[in-house]
Design a protein around this nucleic acid. Structure first.
Length: 1124
RNA sequence: GGGCCUGUAGCUCAGGUGGUUAGAGCGCUACACUGAUAAUGUAGAGGUCCGUGGUUCGAGUCCACGCAGGCCCA
């Protein structure tokens, strides 16, 4: 029976499937964890994906990275529990549900109850769980899928509440009012994290206006201010300048009304607004419509000279009138002269800087009042001007006879493109455009143009966002900035720059974390307040809530608990129905907000265990994480929220090591997107290549933190080159091992020290490989590990060891030499299966099992083994040196043969190697036989100094002498280059030489120069890397005959094969030679030929029946062979 | 506009602390091998190291300023 399975063809995808089935039926993953019970833990946190979309190829990348280090640490003896998780809340879920139901946010509560809506969300959110689980299994990502944490789970939410209360108790949770990104289309504020979604910032062309603000009490004097959001101009209540900037007053004409006027702007910005020739033109002779408008600078002044200047309201709508100090010039430290006019228009409701500055300077903003007497901006939450402004715009349109694409009523003025009208309509006019025309007509616009800039968009609705005043709850992260920074310094970031740069800078410029989301499907904020906002309760657990509810029932505020007789559900609408009792007896209502979903995921270290309500020991044993990995886009997402909560609540890091991987782009370096059709389907790729080649390609091609240009051909190459070579090597082993009935047995194996040199060499290399891969995995550098494994497998094991050892496997019966070869190759293969197991878990296990099946005691799977320890005593540096010399010399000889057109089959007499050090000669002599057979030469001669024919060259050792001589190095170099035979001889003999340099004597030692021999007069030489080889190209008759004999063997072997003879079949050869040299060769090398070709006889005949004519280089030869 | 990353052969990538012939694989060309054979091996061609300045005796490597691409943020 065959002990080692042989494979004609290998279907890698099938290996994936088979091994997956094996893992399942033998519970290998479970065993790999259970086996390490009691061992030190290595903690990994799974960043929860959302299962409401299908997984992509980049998820394979991310998950492969996670898997590699968890598997490696398991092999290293740690217990690595990997709890899976699902991110289930948030806007994407809501939007998907709305799309499917054909509703908008406004319909919630009317067309559909919050209860039914949330129920639908809950059903939707796990929709693609099956695909995710499927992919996870197929790529071999080992994670506990049976007991994942789920962020909507009541227990999970309870922990979130607990954490929020801890923040509240520390006074780190507060309600504020800020200008925030708001999506009218989605009806919600957006977190900075959401705005960080790739693709949110897009280049768009907006109408930009440089408006003229007329200075009060002056004739025709205007301040210029530029904006890309004309719709905010009706809300203008101040202008900001930079105090230290230079400004000018310029006399000129308005380009639209042609009226003479004087304008104020930053001096540096003049070139944008005035044609250079305008300064030469006469102001008096200007005629309306002239192409170049003349101008004169009439006054230069500093920004601070402008402070306090009053101007007329741009849109004098009576309802929007404001008292002093509105409509005046103030200072803003953010004003620059990079664009615009160096004057910034401020609208308190629509800009964060604006809001801050105006608040600080006590300048009121433009607001109206709602029926509860609360301030409201003049644009409503749908992005439409209130009728107060609409009426004004409508009247102005009539006054100036402005025709739009449709009749516009006072309630029709949407900002941006929220009207959803057809923008391609020729007569389409946006509100921005209408405002521009009005201003142009009224001598209030100095320049109107389309301006292309990057503007944030809502990541789901694709509509531009507005900056809009919203009330919010915040976490006061700024209070912990120093601790956040300090703890970050202790984290090992891969790559380092993401930690210090991207993440570090983010922490340095920290703002408070805006927690609030006005939505339905998410974790509700556990805060109850009275109507005045004077009484507040924060609830930190279900039990606490139930006690409060009892009190409320007792007080008569509630009839019964919504949780009565069922499991508590902490979602809306149930918690909204709960009314609590304040200390002073007031009714408390829940703050309607949900919290940022990033809080959900950032709290997973605690919430996944329902800590502190349960599993305290579990939590403590697994906190903080040793390792996490996600995409670099999570830097300010999950990485940030994990870090923040850990620092603020536990004064700890949340993770010690983190890999922030790059993007997976298409092969041309473009982003993959389903829309563009360049997205790669992971399932199809798996089907074609199987999981191992895919993982190996992704991790070996480039460091994970570099973007990967994903190219299927790259996967194919990895498969062919690496897996193919490894597979061939295994097949080779299996083929002969089975023929010889070899079975690897530890107890009877030949000690390494008794094995042939070649074996000891490859085993020495193998030991180095163990160290190299181990070091790389330890440093979270998977790419160098894969490259080292590939290089060993392909270059050393297959291309050198197997090739040179081939004959040992097929020749003769079992003997010690043969056994050593089998054992050595076996040991290399088995070791490779372990070293590659973290990256290519399926193939590695398959290989391991093929090798070990016939052994009883070995663990079932490579993933249940221990990481190998290096055996230092097997490392033989000298032998590795020798072998490297053999490889280099062989390569040089091949190169010479090529040049001289002498094929390897033609034996040659000798090669010459100049050696200047006895050491080198010893190294080479060690592997002399090997070189001789590899390049087919009879002998190797060494020439040393005593021969007297060596031509040596000398050059300085720059690294050493450069440090010593510095600027004089050029002179030293020139001097040394001039040295001839005598000087070289002397420094070699004495170990030093003196030289004159700048009038002084300098002593140069032998170590400070490099002496090489690169030429042997009269010989064909090749040299590389300080090594020189000469080839004796003389062909004697004997050599020629031997070459012919070898050629003949080769042809006979081909014939044997053509005739379908088996390896052990014997033959009889008859040959009719036409050439004397050939018949001489056949006669002289008859024994050799017969041995090689398994011939019992080689007869020379004059005539042959029906012979085969062999074409040899210069001769032809007729032969017949017959099976005996 | 700011932060970070990347730029080396046609393609994908290596090139501690600066040191004088810049490497590998794939692809290409040629050859060899034919008992690993739908394999395998060898050799060759192929480079303004993104550009420009600078530091230095010496720069792919260090510095400055640019250019191009990417990510993140304003």
């Amino acid at each position: 029976m065959k002990k080692y399975k042989e494979y004609k063809q290998v279907a890698y995808p099938k290996i994936g499937e088979d091994i997956l089935a094996f893992w399942k039926s033998h519970q290998i993953f479970e065993k790999s964890v259970a086996n390490r019970e009691g061992a030190p833990t290595y903690t990994f946190y799974e960043g929860p994906p959302s299962a409401n979309g299908t997984p992509g190829i980049h998820h394979v990348m991310a998950r492969a990275i996670k898997d590699v280090f968890c598997r490696y640490k398991t092999l290293k003896g740690f217990q690595v529990k990997r709890k899976g998780g699902w991110d289930t809340h948030g806007l994407p879920v809501e939007l998907q549900v709305e799309k499917e139901l054909g509703i908008t946010k406004e319909d919630i509560g009317s067309k559909i109850s919050v209860e039914a809506y949330n129920q639908k969300c809950r059903e939707t959110v796990m929709r693609f769980k099956h695909e995710w689980d499927d992919l996870t299994e197929k790529i071999g990502y080992w994670v506990d899928l049976d007991d994942p944490y789920i962020t909507f789970d009541a227990k999970y939410v309870e922990t979130l509440w607990h954490l929020l209360k801890k923040l509240y108790d520390k006074d780190l949770l507060y309600k504020g009012y800020t200008i925030q990104p708001y999506s009218p289309a989605a009806g919600t504020g957006l977190s900075s994290h959401e705005l960080n979604q790739p693709g949110c910032y897009r280049d768009v062309k907006d109408t930009s206006i440089t408006a003229q603000f007329k200075v009060r009490g002056e004739e025709n004097l205007y301040i210029l201010a530029w904006t890309t959001t004309p719709w905010t101009l009706p809300s203008n209540s101040a202008l900001a300048i930079g105090e230290k900037l230079d400004y000018v007053k310029v006399r000129t004409f308005n380009p639209y009304t042609f009226e003479p006027q004087t304008v104020i702007l930053a001096k540096e910005r003049m070139s944008t607004y005035f044609h250079p020739d305008g300064s030469k033109l006469d102001l008096e002779t200007y005629k309306p419509g002239d192409k170049i408008i003349p101008y004169r600078i009439v006054e230069q002044l500093k920004g601070k000279d402008l402070l306090g200047l009053k101007y007329e309201q741009l849109f004098p709508i009576p309802e929007l009138a404001l008292p002093d100090p509105a409509f005046s010039v103030i200072a803003g430290d953010y004003v620059t002269t990079e664009d615009g006019t160096g004057v910034v228009h401020l609208a308190k409701a629509f800009g964060a800087d604006d809001f801050r500055t105006l608040t600080q300077q006590n300048i009121p903003g433009i607001f109206l009042r709602d029926d509860r007497d609360q301030e409201i901006p003049v644009v409503d939450k749908k992005g439409k001007f209130l009728p107060v402004v609409g009426r004004y715009l409508k009247a102005k349109m009539a006054e100036h006879d402005i025709q739009a694409h449709k009749p516009l009523g006072e309630d029709d003025f949407f900002v941006k493109n929220y009207a959803l009208d057809d923008e391609n309509d020729k007569s389409y006019k946006s509100t921005d455009v209408i405002i521009s025309i009005i201003l142009k007509n009224e001598n209030k616009a100095f320049k109107v143009e389309k301006y292309e800039h990057s503007y944030p968009h809502c990541w789901r609705t694709d509509m531009p966002i507005l900056y809009y005043p919203l009330e919010s709850w915040f976490i006061k992260t700024t209070a912990y900035k120093d601790q956040l920074v300090a703890h970050n310094r202790t984290i090992n970031w891969k790559p380092d720059s993401t930690g210090t740069g991207r993440f570090g800078n983010w922490l340095e410029n920290l703002v408070d974390w805006n927690l609030s989301r006005s939505r339905y499907w998410g974790t509700p904020l556990p805060i109850w307040r009275n109507e005045e906002g004077t009484q507040t309760k924060c609830i930190g657990s279900i039990a606490e809530l139930e006690v409060e509810i009892e009190q409320s029932i007792a007080k008569g505020y509630m009839k019964e608990s919504p949780f009565k007789g069922k499991e508590p559900d902490l979602h809306r609408p149930y918690v909204d129905d709960i009314v609590l009792v304040a200390e002073n007896g007031d009714k408390l209502f829940r703050e309607a907000d949900l919290i940022d979903v990033w809080f959900d995921s950032g709290a997973m270290p605690y919430a996944q265990w329902h800590y502190p309500f349960e599993n305290e020991a579990q939590f403590k044993a697994n906190y903080p994480a040793d390792f996490i990995a996600e995409g670099v886009d999570q830097t300010r997402g999950w990485f940030f929220t994990l870090h923040t909560l850990a620092v603020m609540l536990f004064d700890s890091v949340a993770f010690k090591n983190v890999i922030a991987n790059g993007l997976v782009l298409d092969k041309n370096g473009n982003k993959m997107s389903k829309r563009l059709g360049n997205a790669v389907d992971p399932f199809l790729t798996l089907k074609e290549f199987g999981p191992d080649a895919l993982r190996w390609y992704m991790l070996s091609n480039a460091n994970p933190w570099d973007n990967l240009k994903f190219n299927q051909e790259g996967v194919a190459e990895v498969q062919r080159r690496f897996f193919g070579t490894l597979q061939n090597t295994y097949n080779f082993f299996a083929l002969y091992a089975n023929l010889d009935d070899f079975v690897y047995r530890k107890d009877t194996k030949i000690p390494v020290k008794n094995r042939p040199e070649l074996d000891r060499w490859i085993l020495s290399k193998l030991q180095s490989l163990i160290r190299e891969t181990g070091d790389a995995y330890e440093a979270y550098d998977v790419t160098p590990a894969t490259r080292a494994i590939m290089s060993f497998t392909v270059d050393q094991l297959s291309n050198w060891y197997v090739r040179l050892a081939r004959k040992r496997f097929w020749r003769g019966d079992m003997n010690a030499d043969k056994q050593a070869a089998y054992e050595t190759l076996y040991e290399c293969l088995e070791m490779l299966s372990k070293l590659m197991a973290p990256v290519a878990p399926f193939y590695a296990d398959w290989l391991y099992q093929n090798l070990t099946e016939s052994l009883d005691k070995s663990p079932l799977s490579v993933h249940l083994t221990d990481w190998p320890t290096m055996e230092d005593e097997l490392i033989n540096g000298q032998l590795e040196n020798s072998m490297q010399l053999a490889q280099e010399i062989s390569s040089l000889v091949h190169s010479l043969r090529k040049k001289e057109k002498l094929k390897v089959r033609q034996p040659l007499q000798k090669i010459l190697i100049p050696v200047l050090q006895a050491e080198t000669q010893a190294y080479i002599q060690h592997v002399e036989e090997l070189i001789k057979s590899e390049v087919n030469v009879k002998s190797i001669d060494y020439i040393d100094d005593t021969s007297g024919i060596l031509v040596k060259s000398i050059k300085p050792n720059f690294a050493l002498l450069g440090k010593r001589f510095g600027p004089k190095m050029k002179l030293v170099n020139q001097a040394i280059q001039k040295w001839g035979k005598q000087e070289i001889a002397r420094i070699e003999k004495d170990g030093l030489m003196t030289m004159a340099l700048d009038g002084s004597e300098e002593i140069i030692t032998l170590e400070e120069v490099l002496i090489q021999s690169q030429d042997i007069p009269g010989w064909s030489v090749a040299s590389d890397n300080g090594l020189t080889v000469a080839l004796d190209v003389t062909l004697t008759t004997e050599l020629k005959e031997e070459g012919i004999a070898r050629d003949f063997v080769n042809r006979i072997q081909n014939l044997r094969k053509d005739l379908g003879l088996e390896v052990q079949d014997k033959i009889r050869i008859k040959a009719a030679a036409s050439d004397q040299l050939v018949s001489g060769a056949l006669n002289h090398f008859s024994d050799y030929i017969q041995t090689e070709t398994q011939a019992l006889a080689l007869q020379m005949e004059n005539e042959l029946n029906n012979p085969t004519v062999l074409e040899m280089d210069e001769y032809t030869l007729s032969v017949t062979i017959e099976k005996v």
